[in-house]
């Protein structure tokens, strides 16, 4: 009797230690990730925000007792004269505020929609109508996407978790979405992400050739899509790759993605990778 209970506990302990080792190996992986594939969200804009710090001291419960000197007197501060040169506040688009606060969008897509984290897409300068449709589809669960190997969830779940509350209610309104999209569409698109070792020229050439079938909808070099269709030039390589695989394998089947199916159905992963390399290096800010 007892023995079986012990044996059971042993099994549990074993599983726990295996999980532990796995967790550690994941950690190690992450800690030594040499690709550094994601970009920066400006957290180091030390300019004006630090200057406000001293006034904070009084309301800091634990720190009041200590005579902490003004944070503003740091070397970084002294060497950034940006703050002083700023002109007086101009009127800001209401979409910006929703983006930065209520929508929490900046965490994942960057403060100006250009420097998204991880494989997440850049959205600055994207088509307005397209964005409205995608945001709604992601919130409602119509757009799912493939499984994120790290979290074990559909890749759109991270965004859904921020925009749909635990009881299933939407945290931003239809009006908010329209405001967001109309602010984002006019922002300058991200610059292409240059890889540490350039993609092989043959890949780019093959990618370019394969892209010929796509021009009718996405425009020359992916810069001039039909109305309501997405810009894809200069998007992140990983993201383009994943979307093409998802659309091909029907993991993404929302909106108009079915229209595209015949054009991607026969593409191999290798071909898709080359298209993604080609598109990711096109600079939309240049004519």
């Amino acid at each position: 009797m007892h023995f079986f209970r012990f044996a059971g506990q042993f099994a549990i302990a074993l599983i726990i230690s295996i999980l532990g080792i796995y967790a550690i190996s994941v950690l190690v992986d992450v800690a030594y990730d040499p690709t550094g594939s994601s970009e920066i969200i400006q957290a180091n804009n030390t300019g004006d925000k630090m200057a406000a710090a001293p006034s904070k001291q009084a309301s800091q419960p634990v720190e009041v007792a200590k005579p902490v000197p003004a944070v503003a007197n740091t070397p970084t501060q002294a060497t950034t004269p940006v703050a002083a040169a700023k002109p007086k506040k101009k009127k800001r688009h209401p979409g910006r505020k929703i983006y930065l606060r209520k929508g929490a969008c900046a965490a994942c897509h960057g403060r100006k929609g250009q420097r998204a984290i991880s494989y997440y897409p850049a959205i600055a300068g994207q088509d307005k109508k397209y964005m409205i449709a995608q945001i709604k589809d992601i919130m409602s669960g119509k757009r799912k996407g493939g499984i994120d190997a790290d979290t074990g969830h559909h890749r759109t779940e991270s965004m859904r978790g921020a925009l749909v509350n635990p009881e299933g209610a939407f945290r931003i309104t239809n009006d908010d979405i329209v405001q967001l999209a109309s602010w984002l569409k006019d922002l300058p698109p991200a610059k292409p992400k240059i890889p540490e070792t350039p993609y092989p020229a043959e890949n780019i050439a093959t990618g370019k050739k394969l892209f010929k079938k796509c021009v009718s909808c996405h425009g020359k070099e992916g810069r001039k899509p039909l109305k309501g269709y997405p810009f894809i030039a200069g998007q992140k390589r990983e993201y383009i790759f994943m979307q093409l695989v998802d659309i091909r394998d029907k993991a993404r089947s929302n909106g108009k993605s079915k229209l595209m199916l015949p054009f991607v159905k026969k593409l191999s992963n290798e071909q898709i990778a080359m298209i993604a390399e080609y598109l990711s290096q096109i600079d939309r800010s240049k004519k």
Partner: peptide, 12 residues
């Protein structure tokens, strides 16, 4: 917690 997961990583 898929929403917060990447932000707990040293990389991010």
């Amino acid at each position: 917690n898929p929403t917060m997961y990447p932000f707990a990583l040293p990389k991010e």
